[in-house]
C-alpha cells in the first residue's frame, strides 16, 4: 500500500501563562491511501490536536509530517492553506457552515480558494457532491433552515468538493441524533468503499469499529493501533442498525 501520510515523532506543546502542556507526545503514524481510520480516547487525550495537525490547521512543536512524501511540517502559512484547499476535506462536530452563505455557496467555498476552475466547473462539482449527500434540493437554503443532520451532510459535501486526498472528521456524529448519525456514518462507509481516505475522531466505540483501523490515544500518546477485519466492521454496522431500530 502507498503511504499517504507519515507522522514521525510528532510533539505538540501549548504554553499558557507559563504552564507548559504537552498535548501530543512522540506520535508516529503512517496512513495509507484508502484507509478508514478511527481515532478514539478520553476527553483531553489529544485527539483533536492530532486532527488539527493532520489537517495543517496547526504546526507541530517538533517532529516531521509528510504528505505524499513531502515534508509539510515547516511549510509557510500560505503553502499549508494551498494543501488544505487541494488535498484535505474537513468535517466538524459543530458543522461549521457559514450562516450568511447559502448551502451552494458553503459547499463551493474550498474551490473558490483554488485557481483554474471555471464557474461552470464549480457549479458541476457542487451539484455532484450535493447529489451524493442528497442535499441538492436545499442548495439555495441557508444553514439555519436545515436540521443538524442535513447540515452535517452539507459539511460532508463541502469536504468532498475538492476531491481531497484525505477527509478529516472531528466527531462528525457528536451533535447528531442516532438516526442522523447513522446516515452520516453510512455516507462515510460509502466514501471509503469508493476509495476515499478518512480519518475520524470519535468517542463512540461502535462508530470506531466501522473504520478499517482503530487508533487509541491516552495522555497525548498513541497506545493502540489495531486493524479491524471486515467481519468486525460488518458487526459494528449491524449493531448500529439494531440500535437504530430499537431507538
Amino acid at each position: 500500500m502507498t503511504a499517504l501520510i507519515e507522522l514521525k515523532d510528532i510533539t505538540k506543546t501549548f504554553l499558557t501563562e507559563e504552564i507548559e502542556t504537552r498535548a501530543l507526545n512522540s506520535i508516529n503514524i503512517t496512513i495509507n491511501k484508502g484507509e478508514y481510520l478511527s481515532l478514539s480516547g478520553q476527553s483531553g487525550c489529544g485527539k483533536s490536536t492530532l486532527l488539527s495537525l493532520l489537517g495543517l490547521l496547526d504546526s507541530p512543536t517538533s517532529g516531521s509530517y509528510l504528505i505524499n512524501n513531502v515534508d509539510v511540517s515547516s511549510l509557510s502559512r500560505d503553502q499549508r492553506a494551498k494543501i488544505r484547499s487541494e488535498q484535505i476535506g474537513f468535517v466538524f462536530q459543530s458543522f461549521n457552515l457559514i450562516s450568511d452563505l447559502t448551502i451552494f455557496e458553503n459547499v463551493m467555498l474550498p474551490l473558490t480558494y483554488q485557481s483554474g476552475f471555471s464557474k461552470k466547473e464549480i457549479a458541476e462539482k457542487v451539484h455532484d457532491v450535493l447529489a451524493k449527500v442528497e442535499m441538492s434540493h436545499r442548495k439555495d437554503h441557508f444553514p439555519s433552515q436545515l436540521s443538524g443532520g442535513q447540515q452535517q451532510r452539507v459539511a460532508v459535501a463541502r469536504a468532498l468538493v475538492n476531491d481531497p486526498a484525505i477527509i478529516l472528521a472531528d466527531e462528525p456524529t457528536g451533535n447528531l441524533d442516532s438516526k442522523n448519525a447513522q446516515a452520516v456514518l453510512a455516507l462515510f462507509d460509502k466514501l471509503h468503499q469508493d476509495g476515499a481516505t478518512i480519518c475520524m475522531v470519535t468517542h463512540d466505540p461502535i462508530s470506531a469499529k466501522r473504520a478499517s483501523r482503530c487508533l487509541e490515544m491516552f495522555d497525548g500518546r498513541l497506545i493502540a493501533d489495531n486493524l479491524n477485519t471486515p467481519s468486525h466492521q460488518k458487526l459494528a454496522s449491524s449493531v448500529a442498525a439494531i440500535e437504530l431500530v430499537a431507538s
Partner: peptide, 16 residues
C-alpha cells in the same frame, strides 16, 4: 473570527 477559521480550514490563504 470563527468564520475566518472555517475559511482557513477549507484552504483560504492570509491574502484571501
Amino acid at each position: 473570527t470563527h468564520e475566518i477559521g472555517i475559511r482557513r480550514a477549507v484552504g483560504a490563504t492570509d491574502k484571501n
